[in-house]
Every structure is written in structure tokens, then in C-alpha cells.
Design a protein around this nucleic acid. Sequence first.
RNA 1: GGCACCAUAGCCAAGCGGUAAGGCAGAGGUCUGCAAAGCCUUUACGCCCCAGUUCAAAUCUGGGUGGUGCCUCCA
Length: 463
Amino acid sequence: MDLKLYNTLSRSKETFVPIKKNKASIYSCGPTVYNYAHIGNLRTYVFMDVLRRILQYCGYEVTSVMNITDVGHLLSDRDTGDDKMVKAAKEQNKTPEEIAQYYTSIFFKDIERLNILCPQFTPKATEHIAEMIEVVKALLDKGFAYETADGIYFDISKFPNYGKLSRANLEEQLAGARVNVNTGKRHPADFALWKKAEPNHIMQWQSPWGMGYPGWHIECTAMSNKYLGDVFDIHTGGIDHVPIHHENEIAQAESWLGKKAVNYWMHSEFMLVNGGKMSKHLKNTYTVDDLIEKGYSPMEFRYLCLNVQYRQKLNFTWESMESAKMAYQRLATHLYEHKQSAAKTDKKVLDGFLKEFDEAISDDLNVPMAMGVLWKMIKLPASKDVYETALVMDKVFALDFDKVQAAPQATQDAPQEIIDLANLRKQARKDKNWAESDRLRDEIASKGYRIKDTADGFELEKS
RNA sequence: GGCACCAUAGCCAAGCGGUAAGGCAGAGGUCUGCAAAGCCUUUACGCCCCAGUUCAAAUCUGGGUGGUGCCUCCA
């Protein structure tokens, strides 16, 4: 199967050609663990996951790496301001290690709930300081970097291709940029590889340039190289990383290695809320727990993400979240019916759907279209074969199709009080006492449950 | 101000040269004591506007208009 992927570098879809036959290596920019991951962040990891699953579906043996940034991410890319970890630690009166540990564990819990396969390697920046120092030393030796009073900087004038990923015109971009006299940088876009620490800085390590801490970009180069080698297949991240972080990564990695390090750069678009930007100020940076609190499951959110192609902005609204919830639940109901059926379906028909599915996902991860194929397929008469085929598709969707169960689960979980009322109503209906049965339905509703009459009794649903 | 991306029904969205996928919501029907769920049917004579290329355009080109993002931190 020909897999086409959109490469930000060429701004076009390219046929994926792996470095090693039947193998694929992916490096994904992971979280800076100074806060909870919001649903916008998570969308990017769902994308990372879908990419990995599609590669696996296509038969590739995937090695994936995602960094955990627990030092070095400055508040400003102009190389000024505090380190994010240090700032969060100060604000919460904890050590950076405590901050990192806390948010890292929450992050892993979140991605697990969203069925995002954990990458095989999730290296922490603080555990790879030595590797980073080696890269910085090499860049200094080769003349791509220089030392100033406050750190080591990459000299972008030594890298003529600087800007090739974002296609930004440096001169125009920086025309209005403020010049920071303190850093002693030769060019405003030169970026920090290493920062010298003030004596009281709470995160610092010994280096050839005294005590200090790494710049943000260097970790990705050092760690991707350690775990994936000089050249690897795919580098993913949020689209916001194109202009600075990934541009810098390319500059330092290619200068250091003397060759191209990454073949395919893939970036996922942002999530919007009500058509606008997510921001803490607008209080719309929801977390998975926020969704759960509002009655939406992680799988329903994953379904929502799968409904939009990764290079399109995803407009999150509560209406669309509700829509995803309804759709996902119905999907599960349908699948359960298929699962229970012993009937057969012509294999040719199923193979036809599977072919459509393959074409969709191999066209730059067109998961929304693949989802459309699934919906068409489940409209077939109930059959176990349809269910089995859906399970094949679920290798990519990862929507827990293997766990679908009968809808009335809530009936068994309902408190005894509700069950008793429901039984009273059952009797009233038997007696054709409609006034009483309607009254009991209202009472059950007022206690948070919806009752449905069935042939042999009732079903309860939490409302 | 500079740059980029986008504009498809009430909402979320596929399609990217051959005559509008899918989901949600809505409407009608069926079922039900009445409901709910399910099921069936239905919902854009048109894809922001105006020109142009073409036998053929939502899809290509040019010009508008509008939105979002980046150039400060962001997935």
C-alpha cells in the first residue's frame, strides 16, 4: 500500500519511503511538563498516535520517541525570561522535579485514557544533559556556535538554509524585533544552545562553560539522535513549532551532522474553541477531566478528533462535543448488534469497504473519510463479519470497539432506590395504571435517570 | 504592518477537474398506553462574492470580502 504523507518541508504530499525497509522511526515533540495538558495539546498526541497506528497497520515496525521537557523551555524564544519549569516551581512553591513528576504522571494518564500508545522511548531532558553538552561542544568546535557572557548561541549566519521549513523571510520577520542587548547575540535569530546560570538558579548542571542549563531546542536533537540515530524517518509536532523550534532543530542538527537528519516533517493544526484561539484568559483550555466532568468520555473526545483531518483546524464547541458523544454511542450500539449476530456477510463486500478504508488512511491520514467508510459498512444487516471488519479498522481508530457491550449497562449500575421505582412502574404498567406509571417515570427522571420500556421490562440510563 | 492557512447545509466536516461522503441536530413515518431508543424516509438546483480557463470547476487562475493563526508563549 502506497502511503502518502504531507511533508511540511516540501509543502506537498509525498510517498513514504522508509530509511530501512519495513521500519519507521518517529520522533514527536512532547509536552513541557509545567501544567496540565489541555484538549488542544492532546489533539496533537492523538495525531501522533494515529500516524503510528497507520504505519503499523501498513506493516511497518515502528520505533517512536517522545521527549518530556522538564528543563530548558524558556518563557521567551528571544532567549530571555525564566525557564518554564523554574517559574512553575516558584509559583507552586515546589521543586522543579516535583512539578515535572506531577504533571508527567498526569500526562501519561491522559494519553492512556485517550488510547494513545505510549512511545517506546519517552526520554526526559534532565536525564540527557551530558548528550546535549556533547552536541553543543561539537557545534562550537565546528564553528557553528559562539560563546557570550550569558551562554552559547547558534550562529544562524553559518547555516544558509535557515528558514527553509517555515519559508519565513528572516529580514522581514525580524525587522521590528526588539534587540536585546543583554544576550550579546550577533543576530536576533541566533538561539541559545546553553545558558549560563546565575549562582542561585535552581536548575543547573556542570558544563565546560561553568554551571548552566540547556536551551530548549537542543534536547530534541540530542535525544532523537541517541534513540533513533543520525537520520530518522518522521518528526512530528504542533504547527506552532514550525517557525522557531523545528527551524532551530534543523539548523543545529544538520550543522552538527553535516547532513539531513529528518526525512518527513509532519505538523498538526491547532484546535479552536468556538472559532477562536484557546487561551487561559478565556478559560477554554479544557482538560480531559473537564470533559469527564461534563459527561463526555475520553473515547468520545478521541472520536471527535478523528472526525477532522489533522492538518485542518479543529473547531471545538460543546455542540460538536455532544455530536461526537451521540455518534460514538450509536456506533457502539450498532457494533454490538453486529457482534451478537451469527449471520455472515459476503467477504467481497467487506473487502470492498476495507479497500476504501485503506485508500482513505493512506492518503495523508484521511481518517474522517475512513470513518465515513465505517458508517457505511455498519449499515449492512447485522453480521459478526461486519464486527470483525470493524475491529480491523479499529487498529487505526483505537476507539475500543473490542469493548462494546450491551447498552443497558447503567441498569445494573443504578442505585437500588431507582431500581425499586422502576419495578413499581413495571407493575403499574402491567395494571394499566398509566397515571401512576407516568408519575413514576417523572420521579425517576428527577433523580437523574431516564427509563426506557422494553419488551420484558425496562432499561435505565443516566441522564 | 509583514507572512501563512482557511471559507462546503443550523453544527462538526469529507471531497481538491467530471457533476455535493459521513456524523450531530431538524422534519415526516413506523413502533409504543404515552414516551424513549431503534428502524425507514427526508434535509445544500449548490460549495463566501465577481471575473476568467475548460466540453466540464466546490475543485484551476486573477481580483475582492470575511475568518483564524504566526511574526511575543503556545500542541
